[in-house]
Design a protein around this nucleic acid. Structure first.
Lengths: 345, 345
DNA sequence: TTGTAGGCGTTATCAA
DNA sequence: TTGATAACGCCTACAA
């Protein structure tokens, strides 16, 4: 039992009257094993409550059982959803989740990541947007020899390295919903420059407006950074325009909350005076007043799928099922109370 | 350089012309080392880009460099804040954060945790409320020999194992604020049974009411579970009471959002018809309309301090500074727009 | 101040 | 189908 109190493979081998290697074979489900031997060893394992030491395995195998979540996401709920999805995939496997936030602004970001990967040598990493959009980062992972899967708003990499959503199309649909209701002056609160998702969503918005033959003056587009305050400021700008927009599409829910906040501050009523649509469908969307019409972004499902891709072929039960994890996920419009037809003028 | 491409301690030793042990001493900052030798070895380390293999160290030392975050918290923002605080403490150390959610409802929860601790053998774990309140869990950690620090709403353990906030007092102050403004019919949306924080907060509420000599009928207390929906339901019950309460204290922000939601659904205006106070000061508090008066709970700071306690004495720069991490943190009232004096009747 | 020998718990190699 | 032996990369004890 040694000093740690934990039984080791040696204890099992000795008591079962077999060699270490045989025990090892039992643990790793080797096919070439006598049934009787296996039974006997498994019994001893059960009696002793033996648990293979992950550190020792990691050393011997040259890789550990940690899946890293690398992110630099401003939205807490989004990060949590991703964590939850990952953990679902990792549940009942030998893998654990290790979280590594990165600071996009920092000059040392790349070094930080390299340092993390080289030191910790995780089995694989899940790259969250917006970091996932950076090809340099993906290349760094590849060079170091660390598996990776990127989550993104469009396909940026080969299937095995990618899980994507159809943001552009989803936003197009959402915008068309506003247009169908009769809105013509529709404002956009965009996401930050450098975010691929921001670009895709903006393109979707522009698609819909163009398709409907509606002019889109520059004054109807205000830049945001996916944070509440930026939504507030952007909405203030848009609502200053005369004539006022009758609807605003915000590139995420948090900024949409800012938009509604700004409207309330001016004494406007949503949706009577202003319709608002967000993106994400984080819990806040359903919780705010009025409940927010938004695009449901299946980020948790995507993360789960991404994690399964990462460990594909490593787990007993999944084998190649995981290889066929889907790579494209559809976002859909969730209609709630923040949208109505524009008031007659 | 071996097959992995990574240089090992052997490479460094060979090239520097010293023994492995000497290199090891350099890595671990052993005091008994010739300055020249150290310089020479460090140079080789730099040239090679050598990084000690954590798995090998973990095996040799019998412990790894993972700090676990064990939680079963319904609030995403709270969990993220804790993660952020932990990571701040772990920044620039050799420790990494590994996240382990637990399912309080599940019968296998204790086994799950035991399994996690025995398999992974984290260096230490941070226990978040509400599971941190469970003495059985703390005992399990102690028995297994895993360091732990509990975060809680009152002192549940000795200083080295505890980081606490003063919820009862903070809620007493918040409630008194309502009373001072003239409110007499004040409702309470409580937290779930079994949560120590829920109990402390409720006691604080009752303290204030009793101190002010205000009767507290059972109808003015509605049970919640810290989730939005429960706040909605609880508020509906409270607002059905005749005469209506003029203010509601909610034991967390998320439920407070539910309270405001319920009020809006009835056409009531906050704070004119109903004052609301929450607890936590999560971002949603400032983002909702009207901005929520709430109690700021310094959970990220607490988590940072807890993590520092965990690794106290393990880091070079901190040495014993971390031992003196504070154990009690004060929550304070943040006044925003969801509270006013009650309307004249 | 530095080096040698042995061990941490597991897996891989290759022979039996 | 099994087992002896040698890695894996680092650390501790003890010796020099």
């Amino acid at each position: 039992m040694e000093k740690t109190g934990q039984p080791t493979i040696n204890d099992v081998a000795r008591i079962a009257g077999v060699s270490k290697k045989t025990v090892s074979r039992v643990i790793n489900r080797s096919p070439l094993l006598n049934e009787d031997t296996r039974k006997r060893v498994e019994e001893v394992i059960g009696d002793l409550g033996y648990i293979p030491n992950p550190q020792a395995r990691a050393l011997a195998l040259g890789r550990n059982f940690l899946i890293g979540l690398v992110h630099d996401n401003p939205n807490a709920q989004t990060v949590m959803n991703v964590q939850q999805g990952m953990l679902e995939a990792l549940y009942d496997t030998e893998f654990e989740m290790i979280v590594r936030p990165l600071n996009r602004g920092s000059l040392t970001m790349l070094d930080d990541l390299r340092h993390f990967l080289e030191r910790q040598r995780p089995f694989g990493v899940l790259l969250m947007p917006p970091i996932s959009e950076n090809d340099v980062i993906a290349k760094l992972c590849a060079d170091i020899g660390c598996r990776y899967v990127r989550m993104g708003s469009t396909e940026l990499d080969s299937d095995e390295h990618m899980v994507a959503s159809n943001d552009r199309e989803a936003v197009r649909d959402a915008t068309r919903h506003l247009i169908d209701l009769g809105h013509r002056r529709i404002g956009l609160v965009s996401g930050p420059h450098g975010f691929r998702s921001a670009r895709e969503r903006r393109l979707g918005f522009e698609d819909a407006m163009r398709d409907a033959g509606i002019a889109l003056p520059r004054s109807m587009i205000a830049d945001g950074d996916y944070r509440f305050e930026s939504g507030l400021v952007a909405a203030d700008r848009l609502l200053d325009v005369v004539p006022r927009p009758t609807a605003i599409f915000s590139c995420n829910d948090e900024m949409a909350a800012g938009v509604i906040h700004a409207a309330c501050q001016r004494g406007l009523t949503v949706p009577r005076d202003l319709s608002v649509i967000g993106f994400d469908d984080t819990p806040i969307a359903a919780h705010m007043w009025p409940p927010l019409t938004t695009v449901r972004w299946p980020i948790a499902t995507m993360a789960r799928s991404a994690a399964l891709k990462l460990i594909a072929g490593m787990t007993a039960q999944e084998s190649d099922a995981a290889v066929s994890e889907p790579s494209l996920f559809r976002s859909t419009l969730i209609r709630r109370a923040s949208v109505s037809a524009p008031a007659a003028e």
